[in-house]
Design a protein around this nucleic acid. Structure first.
Lengths: 99, 99
DNA sequence: TAGTTAATTAGCTTATTAGCTAATTAGACA
DNA sequence: TGTCTAATTAGCTAATAAGCTAATTAACTA
């Protein structure tokens, strides 16, 4: 399981968020992704490795290329993680009440 | 409005996430927060500044001290931001269909 | 097997950030 | 005003990460 650290760090970079955005329309190869960004292919490749370490994407070989696919599992866990911060513990006397 | 960049970067540090966790039980002063962490007060102070820049906390002076309070607004926006990544755009021919 | 294409890794530079101690600011209040 | 206390900012070091080009790996195909 990916650590929250890895996930938030991965999401902290705008290029990586753009890559994820791009992958919403379906799996793409490293080269396909790279050519839509001004950065060098090697740079994109490293971004992809970061996303994979964070388990935000999965890979699968398809003939001569490798397809990157968005994995929503970790997104869901992250959202749940964030949701736990929403409501105060409500044990403290200065916790605000819902109206 | 805080940028997603600032928000995710702020959340990427475990100490800052711990601080937010602590603030769930109610507003606390910089000193109160600092004494629960092994890091120096100045270090915690900088973490608090990062959280404030990301608009994850708000501050309010209370007598001789400054109270930090968690602000759930940006959390909500962030969750919504993440939710938009959940479902594929479903416009692409290789987007998976829901079963 | 040799060559070609796809992709990653190596090795470097530059920029950012976490941590520290010391110095400084900002209020509160006698 | 002068002095205490709370908190931040300054200035430093070490670690991390993004960017590049060049070198290397991995797999397909003639």
């Amino acid at each position: 399981m990916a650590s929250p650290d890895a996930v938030f760090k991965a999401l902290a970079d705008p290029t990586r968020r753009e890559i994820l955005r791009l992958l919403r329309s379906g799996p793409k190869s490293s080269g396909d992704i790279a050519e839509r960004f001004p950065s060098a292919w090697a740079t994109i490749s490293r971004h992809l490795a970061v996303l994979r370490d964070a388990e935000l994407v999965t890979t699968e070989r398809n003939g001569s290329s490798i397809l990157y696919e968005i994995d929503t599992t970790v997104f869901q866990e992250t959202v749940e993680h964030l949701l736990t911060w929403f409501q105060p513990t409500s044990r403290g006397s200065n916790a605000k009440r819902r109206s």
